[in-house]
């Protein structure tokens, strides 16, 4: 699963800049995501990881710089536009509505409507079809959560994250972005979510993963994008660098000459 430099990146960014008042969150950041890979985004707090992700998922609009989807320039003004282009994001813990059931959460914001007249005029939902398709999506990722009519609050943290990932995977035709998907989970549940991420990759969708958990990142990622002070300082692989070396790059203790930089 190593990156092939000759291929066109699925998602690419060049020279992204974002200021918040006097704070510079992104200072000319580049980004490349290749087909079929799990790319981990690592960096110290305030390095600009979240801002970069937000720019890629349409949650913020960068002040400068360009974003390319399959080589074509794109300008996302909001998360909806990014999603329409096949980029789905799993947010840390505000992804689901706990009182709604699994099927409703999976289709939240893009409910399936009945195809007859009452579906078109009165916008009546097609509940049976949503339940059926939700079951298929959940089964697709081998998540065991029982009934699709269960409200999400009855699920464990790992199961909830499973539903959030399933939603992203079901609708992401190009990219899945995950912001700290295991931060709130125990060891065993984290393991389950990591399996899910691999499952998403196996189905052909590349994944961008933000994580603070170095052992986890080294276990799962094909490549690591290291950020420092609002820029990409290196792109490394678990094979090319040790965890200590990665941390040194993050903190600026080591020089930023990664072998596959650029």
């Amino acid at each position: 699963m190593s990156a092939v430099a000759a291929r066109v990146p699925v998602l690419e960014a060049r020279g992204l800049v974002k200021h918040y008042g006097v704070v510079t969150a992104l200072d000319g950041a580049d980004f490349d995501l290749y087909p079929g890979e799990i790319l981990a985004l690592i960096g110290d707090n305030g390095a600009g990881k979240s801002t970069l992700i937000k720019a890629l998922s349409g949650a913020i609009v960068p002040d400068r710089g360009e974003i390319f989807l399959n080589g074509t320039p794109v300008h996302f003004r909001n998360p909806l536009e990014a999603r329409r282009n096949g980029i789905e994001t799993v947010y840390q813990d505000l992804a689901l509505a706990p009182a709604l059931d699994i099927a409703e959460n999976l289709f939240l914001g893009r409910e399936l409507r009945r195809r007859d007249i009452i579906g078109i005029v009165l916008r009546v939902t097609d509940r049976p079809r949503m339940l059926r398709e939700a079951r298929a999506h959940i089964a697709d990722l081998k998540i065991n959560v029982g009934s699709m009519k269960q409200s999400v609050e009855t699920l464990s943290g790992g199961q909830r994250q499973g539903v959030a990932v399933a939603r992203a995977a079901a609708f992401a035709s190009r990219v899945v972005i995950m912001d700290e998907p295991t931060a709130a989970l125990g060891v065993r549940e984290s393991g389950m979510v990591l399996d899910l991420i691999r499952e998403v990759r196996a189905r052909g969708t590349p994944v961008v993963l933000i994580s603070h958990n170095m052992p986890q990142v080294f276990e799962i990622a094909d490549r690591l994008h290291v950020m420092r002070l609002g820029r990409r300082v290196a792109t490394i692989t678990p094979a090319s660098h040790s965890m200590t070396e990665a941390v040194a790059l993050m903190t600026g203790a080591a020089s930023s000459q990664g072998p596959t930089k650029g």
């Binding site: 998360p79 909806l80 505000l94 689901l96 509505a97 009182a99 939240l108 914001g109």
Partner: peptide, 10 residues
């Protein structure tokens, strides 16, 4: 139930 989740879901 969760305005942020709803908004992010479109």
């Amino acid at each position: 139930n969760n305005p942020d989740a709803a908004r992010l879901a479109g």
